[in-house]
Amino acid sequence: MENLVLSKEKLPEMLTEIASKYALFGPIEENGFTSFKHINNSQEINLDYLLTRISPKSLIFQQTETLFTFNKGKEVKVNTPKTDEAKRVIFGIRPCDARGYSILDPVFEGKKEGDYKDPFYTKKRNRSTLIGLSCNKPDLNCFCTSFDDSPASAKNVDILFTDIGEKYFVDIVTEKGKELIENLSKLFSKASEENREVREKVEQDAINAITRHMNTEGVVKKLDKMFNHDLWQKTAMRCVGCGICTFLCPTCHCFDMQDEAILKEGARIRVWDSCMYPEYTMHASGHNPRPARMNRVRNRIYHKFSYFPKNDKIFACTGCGRCIDYCPVNIDIIDIIAKVKEAKT
C-alpha cells in the first residue's frame, strides 16, 4: 500500500482534475441534509457531513432502473436501454457505506464463475472508483467497529482519505486507485512517518469515540433456535411498517419490477421495494406467506443476521446506524441483537 499526503487547499484542484475526466459523485448539502450527487463544481462538495441520509447504494443500485424497452406493433422489438458508459469516481464515501457495496457484490455479481451477474449493477460497480473518507467524529449510533471494521478502514475502497488536520493522509489501496491519481501525482507528496502516526492516532480516537457496540458472536446459531420466540411479536407490535429502515439501509437490496407503457412503447423498470410492506410477499393467489408485521420484522433481522451470513459469510449490516436514527418508533437493531443474545431458548 502506498501512502501519500495531500494538503487541504489542493483538494479542489484535485477534484476539478478528476471531474474533467470522470463523472464525479460526491456529498452535496441541500435542504439541511447531504446526499450523493453528480458534481460539476468542486466547490459544491460538503465534507462536514457524517453520513448521507440516503446511503450511496443508490449510485450503483439505482432506485429506478430501466431493464429494457419494448414497442408494440407488427413486429415487437425489445431493446436494451442506453447505459451510462462514463467512468465514475465516488468521492467522500464513508468506509461503512463502501462496505455496503462489498456486501451487495455477492447478491448482484454472484459468488463463483457461472453465477448470474446483474449487468446494471456490475457495469456501474466496475466502472466506479471509490475514494473513501475516514470518519473523525463518529455519530451516536455508529457501530462499525462491531463488524471488524473501523471508521478509517481502507478495506473496501480504492483510495482512502483521512483528515489529519492541515492535510489528508492518503492510502492507495488498489490498482484502480493508483491509476486514478497517476496523472495527479504533482499534487501529492510522500507521507512521512509523522503523518502516519497522526493518522493512526486519528483512527484510534475515532474508534474510542464509538459508544455503541453490537456483540454478534454466536448470533447466527442463536437465531436458529429463536424463530418462534416472542421477542419478534413484542418488537413488531410497535413497528408501523413504514419501511424507512430498508430504504435508507446500505445493504437492503429488494426490488420490484413493473411494466410501464404508453400507446406504442414501454419499458420494464426495476424499483426499490421493501420487505416491511405486506404487498411485498403477497402472492397472486391472495395468500401471503408473511401476513403479519411480526413475520416481516423477524425476516429483516434474520436476513441480515442469519440467512446472509450463512450464504455469504458476512453480516448484512455495516453498522452505519441509519435505521436506528430514523426509526419513528425506536426499533433499535443493537437492542434487538442484545435481546437475542440474552434470550432463553
Partner: peptide, 16 residues
C-alpha cells in the same frame, strides 16, 4: 418541485 424531486416514495408518511 425541489421537495418532491427528493421524495423516495417509501410511503412512510402513509404508514405512520
Amino acid at each position: 418541485k425541489e421537495h418532491f424531486e427528493r421524495c423516495i416514495r417509501c410511503y412512510a408518511c402513509r404508514e405512520a
